[in-house]
């Protein structure tokens, strides 16, 4: 029987075996590979990141559709490994926890083409993908639009900048573009990043994907700005800091406490203590700003900036003309979230 099978396959395509690692910063370490049509393919997916990932191979051109369909699975998502029931899904791994691996075996499609692979875990699909070239030559890396921008630039490996390697959350006080000289850059889990201004006590902007390149500052004496990597999706503009009471007053920065590696900022406005913790949203790209303003008897207002281009939610208060107003009781503990619009 076996001999017969071989006899009927005169040109046996070379098998492809490779290991793809899921890395911090929402990326696979291998962004593309080649396979002959009908070739046996074996992918060992190793999750080296600190969050969950999978790998789904789709029909040509279907990466974003599949990733978006996964997002809409909602509460069913976990049970389905975030793999939607679509014809455009060809092969998939389960969702892997950190430090685990899975062997995915399949036969490459018969038809030549560029078959995307993508992590469909919510929020990851925009950044974390690559391409399997079946029966097609690889184009120039720099011009390969089937790959994430980082891969096109050839920066496959993140520079190791510290003795501890790469970790999230991570924060730097560093010179940042579009912020005062006392800026703080923070990278959270799930590829979320933000810039917070310690001179003005306010969130300045948000981006997803890679964090920053601090090298322009660190290479010498500080005559440079860190470079924001990834994709910026929200900026505060002129929206100021939290106000307490009716007197317009400047916020005084008092420091921060680290909670699971994430800073909870502490500042004082009009003699009232304000605490702000920024955490990543779990199943979409976005962050939650959790405020605590205990021991306060006055009205609180938070200018939220322009939120028409993002998905904006708030737990309490009234939103009017870009300002969220809360009474003292509401302001004791409230949160707002800013997420990428689906």
């Amino acid at each position: 029987m076996l001999a017969l099978t071989f006899a009927f396959s005169p040109i046996q395509a070379e098998p492809v075996r490779l290991t793809i690692k899921a890395r911090p910063g929402l990326q696979y370490d291998i962004f593309r590979f080649e396979a002959k049509p009908n070739a046996f393919v074996e992918i060992n997916l190793v999750n080296e990141d600190d969050m969950a990932h999978n790998l789904v191979i789709t029909k040509p051109g279907q990466r974003l559709n599949v990733a978006n369909a996964a997002l809409s699975l909602g509460v069913e998502g976990d049970a389905k490994n975030w793999v939607p029931d679509l014809d455009s899904v060809l092969f998939s791994t389960p969702v892997l926890k950190p430090d685990s691996s899975h062997l995915l075996k399949f036969k490459a499609p018969e038809i030549s083409g560029v078959y995307p692979y993508v992590c469909t875990f919510p929020g990851h699909g925009l950044l974390m993908y690559g391409a399997m070239y079946v029966g097609m030559p690889l184009p120039d890396l720099a011009k390969d639009m089937n790959l994430p921008e980082l891969a096109r630039r050839g920066d496959l490996k993140q520079k190791q900048l510290h003795a501890w390697g790469i970790k999230r959350p991570l924060m730097y006080r560093i010179f940042m573009p579009n912020a005062s000289p006392a800026a703080i850059a923070v990278s959270l889990k799930h590829g979320q990043n933000y810039c917070w201004d310690a001179a003005q006590c306010r969130l300045r902007y948000l981006w997803y994907g890679d964090f920053i390149d601090p090298w322009p500052v660190w290479r010498g004496n500080g005559n440079g700005l860190a470079k924001v990597l990834g994709t910026k999706y929200w900026e505060a503009g002129s929206a100021g800091a939290v106000q307490v009471g009716n007197i317009e007053s400047t916020a005084n920065f008092l420091g921060y406490k680290k909670i699971d590696g994430q800073p909870e900022f502490h500042y004082r406005v009009n003699n009232v203590d304000v605490y702000e913790l920024i955490t990543p949203l779990h199943s979409v790209i976005g962050v939650q700003r959790s405020f605590r303003i205990p021991n306060n008897k006055q009205l609180v207002s938070l200018p939220v900036g322009s939120v028409s281009q993002v998905s904006f939610k708030y737990s309490a208060g009234k939103l009017k003309d870009g300002v969220l107003t809360l009474n003292a009781e509401e302001a004791a503990a409230f949160s707002v979230s800013i997420g990428l619009k689906q």
Binding site: F175, S180, P181, A198, G222, N223, G255, Y256, K258
Partner: peptide, 21 residues
């Protein structure tokens, strides 16, 4: 490992010029 960073004094100016160590 430290968990609390308290600003003792930051009431001085910065222009962002590299030489303001």
């Amino acid at each position: 490992e430290a968990d609390h960073y308290q600003a003792v004094f930051d009431d001085f100016g910065m222009t962002g010029n590299y030489h303001e160590f």
